[in-house]
Design a protein around this nucleic acid. Structure first.
Lengths: 155, 155
DNA sequence: GAGTTATGCTATATCAGATAACGATTCAAA
DNA sequence: TTTGAATCGTTATCTGATATAGCATAACTC
């Protein structure tokens, strides 16, 4: 790694020192927990994220929502359709081709429940860190992600 | 992404404050990059990880390898089979039911190439952080992951 | 020796994500 | 104002990672 002797690069192949790998394993574990704590209110993490964003940006377009969540249009259709069928959101016509998404009363109620659950979940997940440590970690991760996502593919 | 409207790129919402979500997005971006830089030597991240571990633990059992990588037995079969068919590894009979995995000469050579690529990749991915910051981040992530994985299923 | 457990494996299911293409609509430039 | 490009929502389909069930063999435990 960064701190190992440069000429001995080939012996230190311990996955524990590969930050990218550890990051992935951690995120998988966190997602698994989130999935299970959201299951009781019958929401998957994606759906919860959608409720959060729609709640924060009422009237957001389906495509914009997809862009924010890095979900492609074709994959959005069934997701939005599902929330709609459950009566959690409503679609308000904007123009001939798009409509804005709004939370219904039920949707808003569920959004709040989900938000509580997620906050509690986060608290458990990162209880190994102090609050300042969490904030710093969050900043670093956000910064790294934005840098990376901006470097690569122009969607 | 790079060329999307700035208001969309710079806006921040609650999702930005959810560490778990950010972690996942970052890990997705990192994996995408890793996948693309490993493609030229015709390796997927999993396969590279397998070469690394086999290289570091010659003779490791297929099941043990799976456990280290959190890959289940049924999913290991095609993975190992593929590496074997490419002549990158050899299977040495241990007892009637299991055999140890070893790198062939080709496998060892490819392992080294892959390792160089991965080191370079990591360096690019986390160039936004100083070396001490990376080390600290690595420690925290490793600690969080081990705690989490130990809480849930005791494999 | 009998019962339990482990290994490697096949076949199959599930689920996220990606791609291609279409009709309808809007926008923009000639 | 017309026409070509771009956008929206959508269907259908493909991929690839991961999960489940079950099997034959072999190894441990008592």
């Amino acid at each position: 790694m960064a701190d190992c002797p440069p000429d001995l690069a080939l012996e230190s192949d311990d996955l524990d020192h590969l930050l990218g790998y550890q990051l992935r394993r951690l995120s998988v574990a966190v997602m698994a927990d989130l999935t299970s704590v959201l299951a009781p209110i019958d929401l998957r993490p994606v759906e919860a994220a959608m409720l959060f964003l729609i709640g924060a940006s009422s009237g957001i377009t389906q495509s914009d929502l997809g862009r924010r969540l890095a979900i492609q249009r074709p994959n959005m259709a069934p997701l939005v359709g599902q929330l709609d069928r459950r009566g959690l959101i409503e679609r308000a016509r904007i123009d001939g081709r798009s409509h804005g998404l709004l939370l219904s009363a039920d949707g808003e109620a569920l959004r709040r429940k989900a938000w509580e659950i997620v906050l509690d979940h986060e608290d458990r997940m990162f209880s190994g860190l102090s609050v300042p440590q969490r904030r710093k970690l969050g900043q670093q991760v956000l910064m790294l992600r934005k840098t990376l996502e901006h470097m690569e593919r122009p969607t």
